[in-house]
């Protein structure tokens, strides 16, 4: 019984490692959006330092949502989703594993990259550490929302899914940015705790609604 979940984990990891598009896609997207900001706002150091936390957060938000849009698509197209639905295995666990694998391969690299790009955008080092922490707590939320958007629009991947999901991600973005901005003060813990609370609050609700969204394609 365990082997089913473990195999899902193994298989998805292999697919990620073997395909440059799914591994590099979010990274390229992230880097190019980061580059767009200085090109649009100018290279003024003070201005960029003020904006940098927001720039990185927004870029990661978009990259993350996009990379999770197609998480269930392949299983849907080749019919394995039907089999999983009919197998009687815990769909909750199955979806959690899939989202976790996707997060490991598309969000974790972005978090490390964000530390590098924070220097390019003149973010102070202490703030960059807080940034990494907030991303560590925030990206799983974005991943689950992205997966939900993907599950809602399995049949035709369109813009509707992500536009529904972005407003719902706002608390994560706001709490993350507030934590970074107050990195010198004691309030920083307040926002980080709240972000963590939002993450754990979202896990069961979002994964369950992902499954609800997947089922609507099979009714």
């Amino acid at each position: 019984m365990k082997s089913f979940y473990f195999k899902t984990f193994q298989r998805d990891s292999k697919v990620y490692l073997s395909r440059s598009s799914s591994f590099l896609g979010p990274i390229v997207f992230f880097l190019i959006t980061i580059t767009l900001y200085p090109l649009a706002f100018g290279s003024d150091e003070e201005k960029l330092a003020e904006l940098s936390a927001g720039i990185i957060w927004i870029s990661i938000l978009l990259a993350n949502l996009l990379s999770h849009q197609f998480i269930f698509n392949e299983d849907y197209k080749d019919g394995s989703l039907d089999l999983v639905l009919a197998s009687g295995k815990s769909l909750f666990l199955w979806a959690s594993i899939k989202i976790f694998v996707n997060w490991c391969f598309s969000s974790l690299p972005l978090i490390f990259l964000s530390l590098l790009t924070s220097f390019m955008l003149y973010l102070p080092f202490d703030a960059a550490l807080i940034l990494a922490l907030t991303l560590f707590l925030g990206t799983p939320i974005l991943s689950m929302f992205g997966a939900l958007a993907g599950a809602l629009t399995l049949e035709r991947g369109n813009i509707v899914g992500s536009s529904i999901v972005i407003p719902m991600c706002l608390p994560a973005l706001i709490l993350g940015i507030l934590a970074i901005q107050s990195y010198k003060n004691e309030e920083v813990l307040f926002y980080i705790f709240l972000l963590a609370a939002f993450l754990f609050f979202s896990i069961p609700i979002l994964i369950a609604s992902c499954l609800g969204a997947i089922r609507l394609h099979f009714e």
Binding site: P167, M168, L170, P171, I174, L175, I177, L178, Y191
Partner: peptide, 8 residues
């Protein structure tokens, strides 16, 4: 969302 917007 409302709460976080208020904090923001």
């Amino acid at each position: 969302i409302k709460l976080s917007v208020e904090w923001w």
